[in-house]
Simulated scan of single mutants.
Amino acid sequence: MAGQITEDGIPMEGPGTDDDMTTVIMHLYPITQSGSDTEEDATPLNVGPLKYSTTLTNRQRGNMVSVLPATLDSLSVHQLAAQGELSHLKEYLQKDETLLNRPDERGFTPLLWAAAFGEIEIVRYLLDLEADPHILAKERESALSLASTGGYSDIVTLLLEKKVDINSYDWNGGTPLLYAVRGNHVKCAEVLLEHGADLTLEADSGYTPMDLAVALGHKKVQRVIENHILKLFKKKVLWPEDEPEHQK
């Protein structure tokens, strides 16, 4: 389907070559996929102070991509990871272990694609094979930031267990927490804050996570941030570290 243009004037693209994709249905807004924890109305993509990377595929933008079974054998290892085709992916990696951390033209590894699409079984499998969760793509996208963008809190937890950089920033200064807040992913934001995500880091636009939550009207995420700030205040101000244990 190379070269085709949707009604919105957006070229259709996939994780690899355009010819590998058979059906693309366009949506203007991101949809909640399995694993995402979005609880309020979705925010239009690339609107507001924090924009998504232009390297994301139609499926990452919320567009459904389907591949006929007959074409699976022709897909790349990156496409198989993105589509959640575990059995075919295993066959690829059993034949060539060097594919495990191989980047595509955007710098995305199979793990990055799986994290971006919320394919948790693929993520588990790749991590068990010791895929490197610290690799950054060409625009500094990380598996953690991509999973946070989609609100895949279970994948976020798996990656944090691998000691990835929770405050890594990408091409526009976006951190995993900023992307979770932007996407209104309440559970994902909670997980990141519980693991020590920095609330003071700003995107290139100058927005902190709290600023972003307020600007977008994401009240549930805002309450999560407020509660976390209160917890930190109690710990550091009301209960100083040098206070005797019995007085806490």
Rank of each mutant, 00 (worst) to 15 (best):
S66P: 00
V156R: 09
G183P: 06
V164Y: 03
Y169F: 13
Y169T: 14
E226L: 10
L232D: 15
D198Q: 09
W239F: 13
D242L: 01
L136M: 15
S142F: 04
I31K: 13
V191T: 11
D104C: 12
R182M: 12
P176A: 12
F117R: 14
D128I: 07
N58T: 03
E243G: 01
G217M: 05
Q83L: 15
R59P: 00
T208F: 02
H246A: 03
K235N: 14
L216S: 08
R124Y: 05
A137E: 00
T22Q: 15
L201G: 01
N227C: 13
H27W: 12
E85Q: 13
K234T: 14
K248M: 05
M26S: 10
L112S: 09
L129I: 04
A115P: 02
T43F: 13
L238Y: 05
E119K: 15
G118A: 08
R61T: 10
K163N: 11
M210T: 09
G174D: 05
G206E: 11
S36I: 03
H195I: 03
D8F: 14
F117L: 15
A82T: 03
L45F: 12
P30D: 01
V164F: 02
T98I: 04
R124Q: 06
L45I: 13
L111K: 01
S87Y: 05
S66Y: 04
T208A: 05
K163R: 14
Q94F: 07
D104N: 15
Q94P: 03
E130P: 00
V214E: 05
L160H: 08
K248Q: 01
T17H: 10
Y152E: 06
L75T: 05
L199V: 06
Y92R: 15
K219L: 14
G118S: 01
F117W: 10
M64G: 08
T149E: 10
L159T: 07
L193H: 03
E85S: 11
D128R: 09
M21S: 12
T149P: 00
T38H: 08
R59T: 04
L56T: 04
A70E: 11
T32H: 01
L99P: 03
Q4C: 07
L177R: 09
G14A: 11
E119V: 11
G84D: 05
S34I: 12
S36F: 03
L112F: 10
D211R: 02
K187T: 06
E243F: 01
E39L: 10
V237Y: 02
G150K: 05
G16P: 00
P176G: 10
S76N: 08
E91H: 12
I31F: 07
V181N: 01
K187S: 09
V47A: 14
A2C: 11
L45K: 12
E161M: 11
D154P: 07
E91D: 13
H88R: 09
R124I: 00
M21W: 13
N58V: 00
P110T: 08
L89A: 06
V186M: 09
I229R: 07
F108S: 02
A81R: 03
Q79F: 10
S168G: 01
Y207D: 05
Q222R: 09
E121P: 03
